[in-house]
Structure formats: structure tokens, C-alpha cells
Amino acid sequence: MQEVIWHGRGGQGVVVAAQILAESAYLQGFKGVTSAPTFGPERRGAPLTASTRIANEPIRMFSQIERADIAVVLDASLLEVVDILASLKEGGLIIINTQLKADEVEIGGCYGIAAVDAVAIALKHRLIKEGAPIVNTPLLGAFARAGDLVSLEYIEKGLRWKLSGGAATANILALNAAFEETTIKNKS
């Protein structure tokens, strides 16, 4: 079983990203997928998490993730607010929305790092909601590239399952752009 934890702020599409990943993984053939928001009230702008579990067999475990295999960070400012590494396995992968390249990111420890400028990609493809760039789709692209778990093809399918018409087209362009632009630094 692979566990993915999504860190973002209320309104950034953290929960939806966790859902789309679960749906994409299911389409790809994983029989066990779950996605869950942080349980409880949510507030715009406040730090929150969501989670996705992916396994070959149906999932019987619904407790919260203790240590994820992969952490996706939708807002790099959270690195200073939340102890993101505390919920990531040693040697795990962290995927960050940042203007930096993967080998410029300093987080210490023994982790794989993937970096993508999700804001720039969202703005370029006019993925904007209520004045804010929609960064979850580009991060799904980075996930496809760096995660080695759910392929770009199936995340595209997952997006099409969720979205329709023009929204799907713009999102899929952004997804592919992020896939191309993601930089990766393997764990040292």
C-alpha cells in the first residue's frame, strides 16, 4: 500500500486532488483506493491535509495516515508552518509547488524531492478560480512524473472523469505542462 498526504490551504483544491488521484489509480487497475479530507471543520486559507491510499487489494484501513510514502505540498509557505516531514517516511518523496528547481530545495534529511512551479503553469493556462491559481492540477502532473505510481495517462483519464468540456481541456494542458517541467532530485 502506498500512502499519499496532501498539504495545502483551504480553497486550494487539496481534497479534490486527493480524490482525482484515487480515481485515477482505480482506473489504472488498483483495486484498493481511498481518499479522505482532514476530518472536521475547514477554513479558507488555513493549513489542511487530505490523503490518498493506493493498494492492489481493497483497503480495510481507514485511520489517518501516520507516515506517508509521498507528501505533496501545494503551498511552499506551509514548510515553515507545518512539520510536513514528520508525517513523511524516511526516504519518502516530497513534491513541492515552488519556483525553485528540485536540487535547489533545502529540506534536510533523506528524501526524494520533486519541484514544479504550479502557480506559473496554472496562470499560463488560465486556471484561475476566485482570483487564485488552481495549483492542484499541475501538482497531479508532477505526481505522475515523480511518483512512479499512477501514470500520466490515467491521471488524464481521472481528470476527464471529473471534469467536462473546456475545463477538462485547460486542466489537461496544465497537467501535461507540469509533467514536462517537473524537476526531480533522488534521495541522497
Binding site: 484515487a22 482505480y26 483506493v33 481511498t34 479522505a36 476530518f39 481493497p58 481507514f62
Partner: peptide
């Protein structure tokens, strides 16, 4: 059924 644990968790 369990609130949040099942009510808000997505699965196939």
C-alpha cells in the same frame, strides 16, 4: 456508519 471515517472517505 462511522461519521467522517466512512461518511467522508471516498472508496470504490
Amino acid at each position: 456508519y462511522d461519521g467522517f471515517v466512512l461518511s467522508h472517505t471516498m472508496m470504490p
